[in-house]
Amino acid sequence: MDQQIELLIAREFCKAVPMVSMLLAVNSHAELSMRDLFNAEQTDQRSLNIRMSAARIAEQAQAQLCFNDGIDPRRIREAIEAELTRQCQKDGIEASPRDVRRTINLAILRQPQALKEAVRVAQSLHIRSENIEPIPEMLFGPKDAERARKGAYGAFLGRFNRPELAFAKMLENDDTGRIKWWLRNPENEKWATRLILPTGKRFFPDFVVGVAGRNTPDNIALVEIKDDGDTGRLQSDSNAIKIRSVHREYRKVFWSFQEQDGVFVKAVWNDSHNRIFGAGPFEIGEMVFIQ
Score class of each variant (00 low, 15 high):
E137D: 14
E137F: 08
E137H: 11
E137C: 04
E137L: 14
E137V: 11
E137A: 13
M138R: 15
M138W: 08
M138L: 13
M138H: 14
L139S: 06
L139Y: 15
L139W: 13
L139A: 11
L139C: 08
F140Y: 13
F140S: 13
F140G: 04
F140W: 11
F140V: 13
F140D: 09
F140C: 07
G141M: 05
G141Y: 06
P142V: 07
P142R: 14
P142W: 04
P142H: 09
K143P: 01
K143L: 13
K143T: 12
K143E: 14
K143H: 10
D144I: 09
D144P: 01
A145V: 07
E146C: 01
E146V: 12
E146W: 02
E146I: 10
R147F: 15
R147V: 14
R147C: 07
R147T: 14
R147K: 15
R147I: 14
R147S: 12
A148S: 15
A148D: 02
A148I: 01
R149V: 15
R149S: 11
R149M: 09
R149L: 12
K150F: 11
K150N: 10
K150Q: 07
G151Y: 03
G151L: 03
G151F: 00
A152K: 12
A152Y: 12
A152V: 12
Y153M: 03
G154V: 05
A155M: 07
A155S: 11
A155L: 03
A155H: 04
A155D: 04
F156N: 01
G158C: 07
G158P: 06
G158R: 05
R159Y: 10
R159G: 06
R159F: 09
R159C: 01
R159D: 01
R159I: 08
R159H: 11
F160C: 08
F160I: 08
F160K: 07
F160M: 09
N161T: 10
N161S: 11
N161M: 01
N161V: 00
N161F: 00
N161Y: 02
R162C: 00
R162T: 11
R162V: 12
R162K: 13
R162H: 08
R162P: 04
R162W: 03
P163S: 04
P163T: 03
E164T: 02
E164G: 03
E164V: 04
E164N: 04
E164H: 02
L165D: 02
L165C: 00
L165W: 03
L165G: 01
A166K: 03
A166N: 05
A166Y: 00
A166M: 01
A166P: 00
A166S: 08
F167H: 00
F167L: 14
F167R: 02
F167Q: 02
A168N: 08
A168H: 08
A168M: 09
K169C: 05
K169S: 05
M170K: 13
M170Y: 00
M170N: 01
L171R: 06
L171T: 06
L171V: 10
L171E: 06
L171M: 15
E172V: 04
E172T: 04
E172F: 05
N173L: 08
N173A: 14
D174Q: 11
D174K: 10
D174M: 09
D175T: 12
D175L: 05
D175A: 09
T176H: 10
G177V: 09
G177A: 10
G177N: 09
G177C: 09
R178I: 15
R178Y: 11
